[in-house]
């Protein structure tokens, strides 16, 4: 196999070259970005159907990681059953959240609904603390921890799992929303709930489905990131904020936007930490986010016309 010139150049040198370093930053940035992108996709699914920004999205990720640790490490289920049962359980949490938290609100203004999601996120975090305590948990990497060397660039096998699952989620959702009746019905709710109701779509069921779906995607993100970063009960809020940033940067409601936004934020953080002062790495991503918003008030791939119709 013949590597590109810059990798060959790096191989000739003993210490790590600048180009290899930059490649390493990109690989790491894409991996972290893929996690953010999955969170952002979760935001979009619920946003499209309800206009709510579900700030409990990060808690789904946290639950995904911790439930997986329980299933795989504590109960001892093999990888695949543990994976599937974790998705199922976290989906259940999403459904309960919609039933008990969101639907019961009598006069739902967008602001009240967002506060309700904050309340739910606090409750989920509280329950997770009672169940798992405060210490971090580890999960064995899905296919071992022997790093793969590509030239001077080191790729942990788990990186590939994270990026791979992002691709699976993206392809699966594209198929779901474009090719299945259910997916099309959800899109109809997103475009115009009253019209959707007129043609006989059960909007409430679609809202429920959106919560279940985004909980499932959150769980996938959590399960794939835990072998890299460990997981503890307090991780959700930060992930929610990064994912929210990614969704906004890409343009709310747009799935390609979410992926683009997530990967961009991951890349900026990684390159910023590697090439500039690492203490400010979060600030770099946010400054670029602000700059983009000032030029394009509805994000990179967002549609300004659509935003104007939204209530909030």
């Amino acid at each position: 196999m013949r590597h590109p010139w810059f990798i060959r150049a790096a191989q000739r040198m003993n210490s790590i070259s600048f180009a290899t370093q930059v490649l390493q930053f990109i690989v790491t940035g894409l991996t972290v970005g893929a996690i953010y992108a999955m969170v952002a996709i979760g935001f979009n699914i619920i946003y499209n159907v309800t206009e709510i920004i579900n700030l409990a999205q990060g808690e789904f990720v946290m639950l995904g990681g911790l439930v997986m640790v329980f299933m795989h490490v504590s109960v001892g289920l093999p990888l695949v059953p543990a994976f599937l049962s974790t998705i199922f359980l976290v989906m259940l949490v999403g459904i309960v959240m919609d039933r008990l938290g969101i639907r019961t609100i009598r006069k739902p203004s967008v602001m009240t609904l967002i506060i309700a999601t904050v309340a739910v996120s606090i409750i989920i975090k509280g329950v997770a603390m009672l169940l798992w305590g405060k210490s971090p948990y580890d999960l064995p990497a899905f296919s071992g921890r022997t790093p793969i060397q590509l030239g001077g660039v080191v790729v942990q096998p788990q990186y590939l799992w994270v990026i791979g699952f992002l691709i699976v989620v993206a392809v699966g959702l594209t198929y779901f929303f474009n090719r299945t009746i259910l997916g099309k019905a959800m899109r109809a709710c997103a475009d115009n709930p009253s019209a959707a109701r007129l043609v006989g779509i059960d909007v409430e069921k679609m809202v429920l489905l959106s919560f279940a779906l985004s909980a499932a995607i959150g769980a996938v993100a959590g399960m794939t990131m835990t072998p890299i970063a460990l997981m503890d009960y307090d991780r959700g809020a930060m992930l929610a904020i990064k994912g929210f940033g990614a969704a906004i940067l890409g343009g709310l409601g747009s799935f390609p936007g979410a992926i683009l936004g997530g990967l961009l934020i991951g890349l900026i953080e990684s390159l910023g930490a590697g090439l500039l002062l690492s203490g400010y790495k979060d600030a770099y991503a946010l400054i670029i986010l602000l700059a983009v918003l000032f030029v394009r008030p509805s994000g990179i791939l967002g549609n300004l016309q659509v935003t104007k119709f939204k209530r909030f």
């Binding site: 210490s15 790590i16 070259s17 600048f18 370093q21 390493q24 930053f25 690989v27 790491t28 940035g29 991996t31 972290v32 996690i35 080191v154 990131m225 890299i228 970063a229 307090d234 991780r235 930060m238 953080e269 990684s270 390159l271 930490a273 590697g274 090439l275 690492s278």
Partner: peptide, 14 residues
Amino acid sequence: KDTDMTAQLTKIKG
């Protein structure tokens, strides 16, 4: 709350 410090370590590796 960071997930990965590879970037910082890669810089040090250099």
